[in-house]
Write a protein that binds this DNA or RNA. Structure first.
Lengths: 215, 215
DNA sequence: ACTAAAATAGGTAATGATACTTATTTTATT
DNA sequence: AATAAAATAAGTATCATTACCTATTTTAGT
């Protein structure tokens, strides 16, 4: 008796993409696309109705992202492997995928060969991350460490003042608002500049916006 | 004798997408995918080597965007119809597509039916824009008009200086860089603040970032 | 060639931000 | 109770930004 084919669920809000993956998985006898879903909710319904071994999911979808979907799948069906597929390989995306503990992450410009490599790795060894993704992961590990130190060690008061600065209040106005001396605000200001490695208020605003420290 | 099939070239840096479109265009006798290309350069080569009636192109591609490709196609082969396919339907994208004068614009979550509608419209009437796109176009026409006044009436020089401000150069440094007086830069600065309704440089930076006037 | 818009620049002043230093008081942690 | 971290504040100085005004020269459009 043959080993059973690996049963695959494809999740993507773009029908074209689902068809693309299906066409890549035609004419072979290891994997079988047994279900498809256009969003996370439909994917979860599909998982309740049939046994699935591997989920291939897009990351950007309406209502529920591939990340959220992965987290739910991992908590309800820890034995199911998840491969996330994405257009972009930026830092934020990769970090989120790591957090969600997906077994694989490939880009949408992946060819047939790499898709099979990923599916095989995931169903046998455990994980698959493309070289592109791995090199970005290494960059993150290096860079994130030091920026984390700078970002996170702003004190509560400093955060409060940073927010007021971004809201266009001057040091004097902030002082009035917080019932403290303008000189104190100035001190906080300079400490904030130093901690965020900003030279001027322009850099600080950009930094605050880029790092989501405000709003 | 039959009418010749409409010859289609698909351009996308994601092989999966090309396969998806091809699978949607299987089993019918109006359109025929006779060529595919993974980027704009290869697409232009393909156009030199064979007759094409309709180009279906992705918008986000490395080296040359679908917009740039469309512009080149339109200047060299004005009789070829172009349908742009995109993930997103944001204002900027739609505006650019209008500028490039593509005959059609559909989203990647388009199903078989809409793809055929688009292809038929484009090869017969002339253009096809999905309802989603049309409604966004109307919003643009309404909103863009008023923000245009504030945003767009920055002069080239003012844009240049705004960019340098955002890059954390002081008025003095900007003056040196542009070989003009610091007083001139100051004047520009104040005009920029007025035109963007910003009270302080903090507001200006936020405004510039929010409106994509920089980077 | 004429006109409007844009770019140029200066005077004068007030206000704001930043640099560097020092020091006291509060608050949290062990 | 001791220590460290955070919040408070001020002195002094310099530099940068903004306000309000006026005015000339360049550039582009009809």
């Amino acid at each position: 008796m043959d080993l059973q084919k690996q049963r695959i669920l494809i999740v993507d809000d773009h029908q074209m993409f689902i068809d693309g993956v299906k066409s890549l998985l035609r004419n072979q006898n290891i994997f079988s696309v047994v279900a498809e879903a256009l969003d996370g909710k439909l994917a979860l319904e599909a998982l309740e109705n049939q046994e699935i071994d591997i989920v291939i999911s897009d990351i950007n979808m309406p209502n529920m992202s591939g990340i959220e979907l992965t987290k739910i799948i991992k908590s309800k069906y820890p034995e199911i492997k998840v491969i996330i597929v994405s257009m972009h390989n930026d830092r934020d995306t990769i970090t989120e995928i790591m957090m969600a503990e997906a077994e694989g992450y490939i880009l949408k410009n992946t060819g047939k060969k790499e898709l099979f490599d990923a599916l095989n790795s995931v169903s046998n060894y455990g994980t698959y991350y493309s070289n592109e993704v791995l090199s970005i992961m290494m960059e993150i590990v290096k860079k994130e460490k030091k920026s984390e130190k700078a970002v996170k060690n702003l004190t509560e008061r400093e955060f409060e003042i940073l927010n007021l600065i971004v809201q266009e209040f001057s040091s004097e106005e902030i002082a009035e608002k917080l019932f403290i001396s303008k000189r104190t605000v100035d001190t906080h200001r300079i400490n904030i500049l130093n901690k965020t490695n900003s030279k001027t208020i322009v850099g600080l605003i950009k930094y605050a916006i880029a790092n989501n420290l405000v709003e």
